[in-house]
Amino acid sequence: MARVIVDVMPKAEILDPQGKAVTGALQRLGFAGLTVRQGKRFEVEVDGELTDEVLGQVREAAEKLLANTVIEAFDVRVEQ
């Protein structure tokens, strides 16, 4: 079974309050100089062979549901 990874990240110009909170906590823990932006990772199990058509469907699913492209960018890749 093939696995496709969809990474979704808030766009650079969009405020990321969660990432900001994590960054602040890291600094308090002594991890200096680390800035975090927080996104989501989806692992999509695909039945059968992973064809270009199926990969296209995953991209379509990412654009339609997994990401809100008003505020988020996504990346689709096959896990080796």
């Binding site: 969009i14 405020l15 309050p17 969660q18 909170a21 809100n68 008003v70």
Partner: peptide, 17 residues
């Protein structure tokens, strides 16, 4: 409504967290 694209924009977590 924003997710439906009936209205523009989106709503994200409050900046005050």
């Amino acid at each position: 409504l924003c997710e439906s694209h009936l209205l523009p924009g989106a709503l994200i977590r409050n900046d005050v967290r």
